[in-house]
Structure formats: C-alpha cells, structure tokens
C-alpha cells in the first residue's frame, strides 16, 4: 500500500561526504566533502566508515543551522556486520537512534520512517540516510580488497560515501515527501553476487509499478525516476521489464539509475557503482540541489537493495531483493 503523507515532510538539507576514488564521480561537484584518505585518518576501515557517517550528518545539520540536541531521531544503516559503523556514529552523535537494514535501499527506507515520525508529530527534525565504505563492505561480502580475482562485466563497485538528509516539517522552499511505497522482498532466483543488478531489477520494477498504480500516475507525470544502484545492466533489465509491461520507449528516458551514472562511463568500474552510500550520496546531494534549483518538480526515488549475506550465498541460497520508493515534489 502506498503511504500518502498529509503533512508533506520536507528534506531540509542533505550532507554527503565521499572517499578519494569518488573524485571520479560525475556527481562529485555536488558532494559536500571528498576526503583523500579512504580511512579518514583512522586506524581501521570501519572506524573511517563511522567518521564518514558522522561528518555527513554534521554537514546536514550545519546547513540547516541545527545542532545534535535539536534532532529527535537518527535513522540509518550500512552494510557492515551488525551495522557497527552507524551504531558507533549514533553513540557519538548522541541522538535517539534506530538502526535500519534494507541493504542499499536503506537510503530510502530510513527517510520513510523519518517522514512517518514527522507526520505523526513525534519529530521536529530527524536525520535519515545510509553509507558504505568500499574496503569494509568488500571484505564483508566478497574477497579481501587486495585479492586478485577477475571481476566480470556484471560486477559493480561499492562506493565509499555517506549521505544523510535532515527531515523536518513541511517547508515550501524545500523538496517535500508526498508519498512512499515500501517494497516487498522479491526473489527471481538470481544467485550471482557479482550480478546484483539482475537480482535487484525485478524488485525495482514491482515497487515502481505498484507506486504508479496506486498513485494513479504514469511515468511521464514525473520529471525523473531515479533508481538506486542497479548499474548499467540492471537498468537495462528494468527498462526491458517496463517495456514488456507496456511502457512506451520515449518514457524510458525519464528513468535513470544512480549506480549506472555514478562513475560516468569509466569501464574500470564494470557495470557501475553500488553500495548503500551510492543512492544516498546522489539522492541527498544532486537530487535535493536540482530540485531546489527548479530543474525537477516531481521525482520518484527508488532505492534498491540486495538482501544477501556471504553466508546465504555460500549455502547456495538465491538473492532476495527489495526496493523502497519516495515521491518528492517541489513547488
């Protein structure tokens, strides 16, 4: 069921920080800070990951002129075991906190929960977002980062980035959240952890279709439908599914994917970018800024997440995926 927000909570600010390799992102000009050290001068990747989360949150708060005690809730997650980077960042931020895991779809699931808290009047301000640090995530899900395995063309590169948004009561000058769809967990039997786009595309398709249907909208009613991290191949598959369901070809140009575009056309990244920080970084920098500039009036953000673990993969399980969507408008 689609959630329609009567009070239309607003995205008051976004904070995005990224690692050294993310200088190559075609979106890097929209980020608040890019660090030269992938560990943020900390001892371990995980500590750097934590620092990254804190700094993204601080940028978001600074832009809106609020401080930690003003924030009622902190919603977020990452991909490391038990989400310790975000949990530890919550310790240092000292804001009431609920950790959320929707893999790379956490960037949107966290905003949905924060918007609901705003809607029922439980929160004036909340921080919501997600993050990923390449080294910490790769060792978790695949191989040590220095292991020389050959990645296929279907593989995606986990970004080092954190993106957090400050969500508050409706404000006309800021992009506002009109509606949201919480996705089901969809499994089309894909089982290749080096081909996540193919596993996630059906989840994105179902969430988009159900959102449009229940909102009584067509794709062309939006200025942009931006998925999270399907990558170039996953985006192709999503478009293929949409065409099959009767969507016209000219509408497909309104469909873009943050993962496919993140690093431009650079082939060293294979099918593109992924990771919880990928969609969060683009949604809470580029999208918010473009909406405030008036480039887009109505946007559908669809974050996709592959709900696998190394354990489930090794035990021969397929990869269930989810996609959560928020509809954002700007007067």
């Amino acid at each position: 069921m689609v959630i329609v927000f009567q009070s239309k909570p607003s995205l008051l600010a976004g904070g995005v920080v990224a690692g050294p390799l993310e200088k190559r992102s075609i979106f890097s000009q929209y980020f608040d800070a890019i660090y030269d050290d992938e560990r943020w001068e900390m001892k371990t990747n995980e500590q750097g990951h934590r620092k990254m989360v804190e700094e993204a949150c601080e940028f978001a708060m600074k832009k809106a002129g609020v401080k930690n005690p003003d924030i009622d809730y902190f919603m977020g997650g990452d991909l490391v075991n038990q989400m310790t980077p975000t949990n530890f960042a919550a310790r240092d931020l000292a804001i009431p906190f609920i950790g959320l895991f929707s893999a790379c779809a956490t960037s949107v699931s966290s905003v949905i929960v924060a918007s609901l808290l705003t809607e029922v009047g439980a929160a004036n301000f909340s921080l919501a977002g997600a993050s990923s640090q390449h080294n910490a995530v790769e060792r978790q899900f695949r191989y040590p980062v220095d292991y020389g395995s050959q990645k296929p063309q279907t593989a995606q590169w986990t970004v080092t980035a954190a993106g957090f948004a400050l969500i508050g009561k409706h404000h006309e000058e800021y992009p506002s959240i009109e509606a949201a769809t919480v996705g089901k967990s969809i499994d089309y039997g894909m089982d290749d952890p080096f081909h996540m786009g193919a596993a996630m595309a059906p989840a994105a398709f179902q969430t988009i279709q159900s959102h449009l249907e229940q909102r009584n909208q067509k794709i062309y009613n939006y200025d942009l439908i931006l998925t999270g991290d399907l990558g170039q191949l996953g985006l192709k598959l999503l478009k293929g599914m949409l065409v099959e369901s009767g969507v016209k070809n000219e509408e497909l140009t309104l469909l873009r994917d943050a993962g496919a575009e993140f690093y431009g056309q650079d082939e060293s990244f294979q099918s593109g970018a992924s990771g919880a920080g990928c969609s969060a970084a683009i949604f809470f920098s580029y999208v918010i800024q473009q909406m405030r500039a008036g480039t887009y009036k109505r946007v559908l953000l669809v974050a996709t997440g592959a709900l696998l673990s190394p354990l489930s993969f090794q035990q021969g399980e397929t990869i269930p995926c989810t996609a959560h969507a928020i509809e954002i408008t700007m007067k």
């Binding site: 296929p152 063309q153 279907t154 089309y188 894909m190 081909h195 059906p202 598959l237 293929g240 599914m241």
Partner: peptide, 23 residues
C-alpha cells in the same frame, strides 16, 4: 513478468565473458 521470462531477458542482456580475450 514471470521468472522464466525474466531469466530469458537476463540472459539476453547480460554480456558473455569475452572468452577469447580472457584466454
């Protein structure tokens, strides 16, 4: 779209490894 049909679409879209170049 059914799973079977999706599998076909997936196989059409996914590039084969460049066997000769890799070898």
């Amino acid at each position: 779209m059914e799973k079977e049909q999706y599998k076909k679409l997936e196989q059409n879209v996914t590039p084969k490894p460049p066997y000769l170049k890799n070898v």
